[in-house]
Amino acid sequence: MKLIQHLSILILALMVAIPMSLKAQEDSAPVNPAAETSPRTPHFSIGVLGGLDRNYHIVDMSYMTDYSFSPYAPGTSYGVQLGYSPWKWLTFRVDGVMLNKNYYREHMMANGGGAYPDTTTNQYVNVPLVVMLNVGNAVRLHAFGGVYGGYWLSSHRKGKTMAVFGSPLYDEDVDLDSEESQIKYNRKDGGFTYGAGLSGVIAKRVEIGVEVRWYYGIYDIQKEYMTNLNPRYNTTFVMQAGLSFWL
């Protein structure tokens, strides 16, 4: 958690410092009429992005109060981005990203029964489509919102469990294709995504940016295989940097 906080401050600081530095260079350097510091419109852009995420696994444990879920299992997010800006203030953007929706769960068993931690690492592919509103020129502020679709690719569990004799450790892949998993798990993912970002032009038609984004899942990770289904959702916070080229 602290690592993410520190990195976020660092990246934000860089994103403010770099455009300011570029602006200073621009002021002192001779004007190059060929350099484009403000996007022409309409235009397409293509790029890559990557960063860190933390996932909030939302589940109601009711009277099972000795279970606790927390997002202390950070993951990564990386992928490609494709944009289209019909006007300077508006961009449509679609990304293709691989990201983790991990969570840490602990069962602190009552009566001194000990702690049973579990770290579940999930790999998803998400395709968010957003409408982005832009403000500024060489340094631009963005706010965006949209929808995303996705698919749950794989899952891995690591922790300690209860057995008749002892408390064995486990570190294993979850077979999402098993008969039981196919009954239980809903591998389709989707929902809303929104966030904000800051970008700056660093060279002709080259822009770097940083953004924070939330993926708000509206698909239960389980299928409706029973009446009293206790829904489980993922909400994922992503902080990422990107590099894009105007076409």
Binding site: D60, S62, Y63, L133, V135, F192, Y194, I218, P231
Partner: peptide, 29 residues
């Protein structure tokens, strides 16, 4: 543009938060 951002965000958050199913186990004993 700022007005549009605020309006857009408010509508978006409203739609979003109404799309999840309520837990059925809250009252379980």
């Amino acid at each position: 543009s700022l007005v549009k951002i605020v309006l857009f965000s408010s509508l978006f958050l409203f739609i979003m938060t109404s799309c999840r199913k309520e837990s059925t186990v809250s009252d379980f004993v």
